[in-house]
Design a protein around this nucleic acid. Sequence first.
DNA 1: TTACGTGCAAACCCTTTGCCTTGTC
DNA 2: GACAAGGCAAAGGGTTTGCACGTAA
Lengths: 143, 143
Amino acid sequence: MDKPRRPLFAVTLARGALRQTPPRQQVLEVFASHPERLPVAEVHARLRDPRINLASVYRAIHRFCSLGILVTAGHVPAGQTYELSDDYRAHHHHLICERCGTVTDIEECRLKPVERRIRRQTGFHVRRHDLRFYGVCPTCAAR
Amino acid sequence: MDKPRRPLFAVTLARGALRQTPPRQQVLEVFASHPERLPVAEVHARLRDPRINLASVYRAIHRFCSLGILVTAGHVPAGQTYELSDDYRAHHHHLICERCGTVTDIEECRLKPVERRIRRQTGFHVRRHDLRFYGVCPTCAAR
DNA sequence: TTACGTGCAAACCCTTTGCCTTGTC
DNA sequence: GACAAGGCAAAGGGTTTGCACGTAA
């Protein structure tokens, strides 16, 4: 049902004719070891080598986005966040608490039939989707 | 089924104890006459009175967001965009073409049952959701 | 060896803020 | 007349870019 998870990043990089450099390598390591929405500054902070420049992180992330390895995880007040694409982690959606800002992942997704219907009815070929639920988390509701 | 569309903005403003001023009035007019995702700069450009300050537009938009009149419509490369909330326009979702960037609205939405299930299973109280489909529009697919 | 990628620093641009003036209620 | 709201301008903060050097392939 689900498409097979992609192999090593190295393979993908090679496929994309990208040079494997320490900055790119380490940016991928961060996302792989911490597969959640991350703002660029935090990716930078988690790099093994702290001398790597912020600009390089931006450039690497942009490159990975255009290769489909990363996707933007949408807006947060202080800058854009990114996460691994569905090819590299399980497809999921976000529950976003409007009070505390906490983001929780949920696995359930029944949109495939909807995507097919859209294609039939509008001719638009859906390749991916992004679904977020906003509301109040149990913790905030309790207090 | 759907909740009734809210009345005049004026009523809402009064209810929120907001003063009715030309900048706020005109910002609402822009969204009402052009109920789509708009970046702040474009809202500003569409104001009847061009002397209104950009900062005032930002302040008005923030105010309206906290009142639930506007919602952020998510990320675009050059800044945040906003649109009228479901209370003031029909609930809908976006079809976003990854090639030409065109955004189309679709009305279909069957997520209410999903929202209920989320609440039952996680305790998270969903108040609204945001669903976007990314892919290739018929026009781009044809060429 | 040859592009491609990086570091550095300045430039950019959207957004926010302080302060004084304006205008609504 | 009070106090919220706006105008203006400068500051802030994330992101991008030009350029010269370094390095993967």
